[in-house]
Nucleic acid binder design. Sequence first.
DNA 1: TAATTAACATGACCTGTGTCATATTTTACT
DNA 2: AGTAAAATATGACACAGGTCATGTTAATTA
Lengths: 280, 280
Amino acid sequence: MKEVNSIPIGMAQWLAKDRNACPKFNLSLMRFHSLSISLSLLISEAHMKILEPFRKCSHCNSLSKCLFKNLDAGALFEIEKIKRINLYRKGSILFSQDSPALGLYVIAKGKLKVSTIDYEGREHISYLATVGDIFGHHDIFIEGTHRYSTTTLEDSMVCFIDKISVQKILELNPRLFQNIFERFNFELDGLRAHEQSVISKKAKARVAELLVQLAKQEIENKHEKIKIAANLTRVEMASMVGIASETLIRLLSEFKNEGIIEISGKSLTILDEKKLLTFA
Amino acid sequence: MKEVNSIPIGMAQWLAKDRNACPKFNLSLMRFHSLSISLSLLISEAHMKILEPFRKCSHCNSLSKCLFKNLDAGALFEIEKIKRINLYRKGSILFSQDSPALGLYVIAKGKLKVSTIDYEGREHISYLATVGDIFGHHDIFIEGTHRYSTTTLEDSMVCFIDKISVQKILELNPRLFQNIFERFNFELDGLRAHEQSVISKKAKARVAELLVQLAKQEIENKHEKIKIAANLTRVEMASMVGIASETLIRLLSEFKNEGIIEISGKSLTILDEKKLLTFA
DNA sequence: TAATTAACATGACCTGTGTCATATTTTACT
DNA sequence: AGTAAAATATGACACAGGTCATGTTAATTA
């Protein structure tokens, strides 16, 4: 099993861990090693500038995809006051399986993998989460623990609101229940579809499916050629569809030989999506 | 594919379809063939007696397992006024995949299978639902369609509340959101566990798991010997764990030869649960 | 009660996919 | 840059489990 930075939450930690700065957000910061310095002191000018467009929910670039998308200005203002924005370096863990659920996480920027460890210690990735996806909504009303771990695949920014505050917000904005219901449904549908796929489809079909799905998540979707830059290892991709990594590798080669995809290192490019879909 | 009574909903239909009366509820009714007669006229004395303990939520024997379990008397009274109690004969369909979701169903008595049909026409049973289980909560706030079909495995009684009424009840009793959240979580956990199982366990382990799970649903759980009376065909059991029926049959024989279970027709008896668990 | 059908059971066979071994390439670290 | 360690790739092999065929038993229907 891969060892990952297991330090949780928070900009202070992020800064402390930061060595080469955060490439995604194009920062080059001095290094801070002392966590005893108060958080506010640690925040540089550069950081402030980066957080700015996310600090005000009403002006957030990701609002349309956010859980709080259709709330009125007043409600958004309340949320702005309570929420914390955390930065995570690539490879760090938001929370891990069986840890107590503390509140609600909303991804503002970045990409995460949602995974569980099975009884034999193998990692199973359920899905990749991205902007607008939320965690912790399962346990708003109960003293529960997370059923899965979330790990950043790239440098990411995540808004956090503690449980009690979420309850208060919900009380004042029952509209939000609909959004959460929507989210629950989305997850249920996804799980059902995935289970069906695992049960009734062969490995090749599932890999085709995975590629199409990963391609869909890419924003630079301009032309026919879609480059998948999820930055997943073969082992991770395999664990998303429940097959051995060797099988995945073999199938990728097959697709390559059939002229459907192009492989260059970690990055895959889909050349013929139509043909790919016939397999899925 | 098996053809099932595809008549939906309602006591009127149930009565109309009834031939040998409803064994479970010990009814012997005259036969009604005309649906044009108003519903109330169709309800016999015997029926009234059977529905009685379910009509008043506050006195319902299944209240502790119901979605409405921890509501105050006033709220329950409101629900009593709106809800409809429907009877279904064994093998009839509450609702089927892709049909519009009309409201909330709560199982008051009986047992149902929850299933989907995959792209190749094969049935996949997700789980067996029983007293207290609910359907339609997914679509309370949206104009959605059911993602699966539900079919009664025995004569069953189901309370129904239309969507609009559910919304009103929720507005007045936000406590209910917690119950629904709980339900969502329960389903998600179940799905996750099942998917994990399908991905990482072999057929034998999954069948062992299934048997244990089915045994747990039996109420006559007194002694070590647990009789499974779910009344499922081998094909249905196989479709619950995603294997071919032949494989299931073979594995059941194996368990029989190992002295773990006893088979006599449809009814299975678990003789050695401990040993069974070592496989799961 | 016989007749028909559906469900159950078992054998033969074959393919997909996991496991293990090993080589090659890429990435990370000093 | 050079070395160590992952990650990727490919081959050999075994076997779990799907499919098909066929027989047997149980459940319906006439």
